[in-house]
Computed example of a mutant assay.
Amino acid sequence: MNFQDLSNKALISDSDIDWEDLGAGVKRKIMAYDDQLMLVKVDFEKDAIGTVHNHPHLQMSYVAKGSFEVSMGDDKKILNEGDVFFAPSNVFHGVVCLEAGLLIDIFNPHREDFLK
């Protein structure tokens, strides 16, 4: 497959993708994915909660904006713009948004459950 065949998946404009309202002050955009990788933008209003959960996927999250209290297993830490957290497979994790913020989440493999 050449690059031309991938251009509709490889060159992505934010304005072409609608936000999905998840309720309770959280919304997301699935920006790009294939079978092995997925990038998702997640927007949080102040005090919104990313409920503690786990999944088999590897996850890395970049704090693009705002401040979050991040729970990872038994640990908690406040992360701010420019910081990152890594959630290994099946480790419980979640966030509380301390000031309006945006996370950039990367999953391996992609989150099939997000596509349903």
Score class of each variant (00 low, 15 high):
residue 1 M to D: 09
residue 2 N to D: 06
residue 2 N to L: 11
residue 5 D to T: 15
residue 6 L to C: 12
residue 9 K to L: 06
residue 10 A to F: 05
residue 12 I to M: 11
residue 12 I to T: 15
residue 13 S to R: 15
residue 14 D to Q: 12
residue 15 S to P: 02
residue 17 I to S: 07
residue 18 D to P: 05
residue 21 D to H: 08
residue 21 D to M: 08
residue 21 D to K: 08
residue 22 L to S: 10
residue 23 G to R: 08
residue 26 V to G: 02
residue 26 V to L: 07
residue 27 K to P: 00
residue 27 K to A: 06
residue 28 R to Q: 06
residue 28 R to F: 03
residue 29 K to N: 07
residue 29 K to Y: 02
residue 30 I to H: 03
residue 30 I to R: 00
residue 31 M to T: 10
residue 33 Y to D: 00
residue 34 D to Q: 02
residue 36 Q to W: 11
residue 44 F to A: 04
residue 47 D to V: 03
residue 49 I to K: 15
residue 50 G to P: 01
residue 52 V to S: 08
residue 52 V to N: 09
residue 53 H to R: 07
residue 60 M to E: 06
residue 61 S to Q: 08
residue 64 A to F: 00
residue 65 K to F: 04
residue 65 K to M: 02
residue 66 G to W: 08
residue 70 V to W: 00
residue 70 V to P: 05
residue 71 S to T: 15
residue 72 M to R: 13
residue 72 M to H: 07
residue 75 D to W: 00
residue 78 I to F: 04
residue 79 L to T: 09
residue 80 N to Y: 01
residue 80 N to E: 10
residue 81 E to C: 14
residue 87 A to Y: 10
residue 91 V to R: 11
residue 92 F to Y: 04
residue 92 F to W: 10
residue 93 H to L: 11
residue 96 V to I: 14
residue 101 G to M: 02
residue 103 L to D: 08
residue 107 F to L: 09
residue 109 P to D: 09
residue 109 P to N: 04
residue 110 H to W: 01
residue 110 H to R: 13
residue 112 E to C: 01
residue 116 K to W: 00
residue 116 K to L: 04
